[in-house]
Amino acid sequence: MTASLPAGLRERVMAATHQVRQAGQSVPEVSEDSPAEAFGHAADAFYQTLCSLTGDDWGLPVLRDLDVQGLVGHLIGVEDDVQRALAGDPGVASTDHVQSTQPAALRQAGRPTAGTREDWRRAADRTLAAVTGGDLDAVVALHGFPLRVRDLLVARTFELWTHENDIRTAAGLSLAAPAPSTLQPMTRLATALLPFGAVFTDLHEPVSVHLVLTGPGGGTWDVAVGDPSPEPAALGIVTDVVGFCRLFSNRIAPADLDVFVTGDPRLARSVLTAATALALD
């Protein structure tokens, strides 16, 4: 049996629901890692994956011209550059992410793999030590991006998780997903950077994106992308939180992401492409 609703009931019910829970809040609530915790958890997970590799796995081709050992060397180089940036060294402000770290990657060839693994672990620990007690809102410049330290740590969380999965894929292991508590700062950063991704991909059309990331660690965001406008096009995008993070890391193409869209599908593709634009290899 259905019945016509009395006038005003919809408004009354919507007002009552918003009194008990704000829009955007995911349920069940999960605690959110601090930026340093997120980076620490990603580093631990990366190290565990390295420890699970066989000797042969270290020689598998994984990314660009790098094998697994070379990729870990690249990350040793990244940690060195991060520490220089944190120390205020302008020499790493605008260097290229790959070129700057290629010498560290190439240095690993022929070394015992345990030496590479432990060198990386110590480098990651030095990064953590360098930010402990420091000003997380200080802005540092690294590889062409000025970022607050808190955002840099979360960006590095993305990088470690992404390369962990690069290695796991090369070694035939299942993909790893961050804990919901770690996903929260990752999604917060990814959604905050979406308008900048739109700038990089020349998406000027004003769009109000209602972005819903489902699953533990997800949430709902309303993000304005494109040129400012009083009447932006309304677009709704619903997708899985881990899938969106893989998209942001440029490890899945927009066309391969399982999404539910309300609004213009062409605009949705443009916005999803913008999400991939800030990923670094």
Binding site: A3, S4, L5, R10, M14, Q25, V212, T220, V238
Partner: peptide, 23 residues
């Protein structure tokens, strides 16, 4: 999944779709 993610648009959709039956 959308309701769990805090999607108020989903709540409005569910209301419009199912509130007459609930009433």
């Amino acid at each position: 999944a959308r309701l769990a993610a805090g999607d108020d648009h989903a709540l409005a959709e569910v209301f419009d779709h199912l509130a007459p039956t609930v009433y």
